[in-house]
Deep mutational scan, measured.
Amino acid sequence: IINNLKLIREKKKISQSELAALLEVSRQTINGIEKNKYNPSLQLALKIAYYLNTPLEDIFQW
């Protein structure tokens, strides 16, 4: 999986903590996703895309 979450999140000036709060997950979860240590569920990936107002395929590429 190619993961552009960190790049997109930083472009939008959103911290890991802010995104985690919006998604109701821990900051460690966001960190793990960004470091490719954790693959989000489809539901979480869709929520990330929604809150970042970015197409899912721009954030994650399988």
Rank of each mutant, 00 (worst) to 15 (best):
K6A: 11
I33M: 07
P40Q: 01
W62K: 07
E10K: 11
L7M: 13
L52P: 00
P55R: 08
E34T: 02
Q43G: 12
D58A: 08
K12E: 07
Q16H: 04
L7H: 14
T29R: 10
K37Y: 15
K13P: 04
K35W: 08
K47V: 04
R27V: 15
Q16S: 06
N36P: 03
N31M: 14
L7Q: 14
N4F: 08
I8E: 05
Q43E: 12
N31F: 06
Q28P: 07
A45H: 02
Q43K: 13
L22Y: 15
E57G: 11
L56S: 03
L42T: 05
N31T: 08
P55S: 10
L56Q: 02
P55T: 08
I8G: 02
S26F: 03
N4D: 04
S26A: 06
L7P: 09
L7V: 15
Q61A: 09
L46N: 08
N3M: 04
S26I: 02
K6C: 07
E24I: 06
T29I: 15
R27K: 13
L19V: 02
N3V: 07
T54W: 05
K13G: 15
K6G: 08
L56M: 12
L46V: 09
Q16N: 03
K35I: 11
L19T: 00
R27H: 10
K37C: 13
T29L: 15
L56N: 01
L22T: 06
L44N: 04
I14Q: 04
N36C: 10
I33Y: 06
L7S: 15
K47C: 09
V25N: 02
P55C: 07
I59R: 00
G32L: 15
L42C: 14
R9N: 01
P55L: 05
R27F: 10
Y38R: 09
L56R: 02
K13T: 06
L5N: 02
A21K: 14
T54L: 05
I33T: 02
Q16R: 07
A45M: 15
L52D: 00
L23E: 00
K6H: 09
E18T: 12
Q61F: 12
E10A: 08
L22P: 01
E34S: 00
I2R: 11
N31K: 14
Q61K: 11
Q43R: 13
S26M: 04
G32N: 15
K35E: 15
F60K: 00
I1N: 10
E18S: 10
D58M: 10
P40W: 04
Y51M: 10
K35R: 13
L19Q: 00
Y51R: 05
P55N: 07
L42W: 10
G32F: 13
Y50I: 07
E18V: 11
E34N: 02
K47W: 05
Q43W: 12
Q61W: 11
N31C: 08
A20V: 03
S26N: 10
G32S: 13
K47I: 06
R9I: 04
N3W: 02
Q16P: 05
E18G: 09
I2K: 14
E34C: 03
E57N: 11
L5S: 02
I2W: 13
R27E: 15
P55D: 08
L56V: 13
L46D: 04
E18W: 07
I1L: 14
N53C: 10
W62A: 08
L23A: 12
